[in-house]
Amino acid sequence: MSELVVTGLGITCPGVAKPSDAAAPRQEPSPGWFDVSCALPGRGYKRLPAACQYLLAAARNALADADAPFDGVPDERRGLVVATNNAAMELTEHQDGVILASSADEIGPLTAPFFVLSLFASRLATEHGVRGFCLTANSPRTAGLQALRLAGRALACGRADLLLVGVTEERLPESEPGSSHSDCGAAVLVCGPAASTAAETAYGDCRIGDVFLEPGGEPDPALTRAWNVVCAGAPGPVLVDAVLDDSAIGGAVASWLARRPVETRMVRAGAGCLTPMRHVVGALAGGGPERVVITAAAEGAVTMARVRPARHAGEQTISHRTMSARS
């Protein structure tokens, strides 16, 4: 199973000032929490959908954090994997409302194409000259962690030398079920293959595994197999961040964890795939002990990420932020 080494982190979430705070409880976005002219100075950003702005801002921070790693990488060797579930839901609801109330001719032209979820990643690819590949994952809730696995596989298959892995989400509109607990913001990681990335510049590494559970079925064997694969070759983490909802699948995973010799921090999952990735970012930036982040969708998919922070990661975050502030 391929591993990813992470060398840069960026996050844009309500109430989160730096990557090491990424795993803090989700906050409701207050009006004006994101200042686009400050986060993205220059032309061409103000009229983008909010989730695109979040993604671009988080990517800027991640690339700065990694000291401009794309500078030495040809465009065609740069890759990008972005995960999202709800980046376009508010926009498409508005567009549909225009069609229902008047005519498609009245749809706002500037943001019209963003009903296509992959345009959020494509806009980021254009921003940073990513021409190797640009992939979008949209599995419910698990897409963020799956993006790490897609990235690791793409690196193993030689499709890029360095890549960005991101998640971006916008709050669900109130007309959508589950809107009161929906993700908002973005996180981006700069990632390279384990073999060619200098350990002294890394936050740590990630290894991902996943399974699909049959609703009402017996989850233990499948989850245990996935755990054993993800945690192979080491004593295994005893700390687990479990981002779960109260569905049958979420309950099955919680019950399975309760029977394992692990210390579990339960986190209420919302609509979207950002929260699990926030916990990966928080674990890497915090530089604490190894842990597993696990999440599950009510629809059946379960994904787990073993995160092994480098010992110096917390110090590195501080030094990089200082450099960014000076520049």
Partner: peptide
């Protein structure tokens, strides 16, 4: 009307189904 506290209805459930 939708229940804001109800279960989320993701757009991309096809692969799971």
């Amino acid at each position: 009307p939708a229940d804001p506290d109800g279960p989320w209805n993701p757009l991309t459930v096809t692969a799971s189904a």
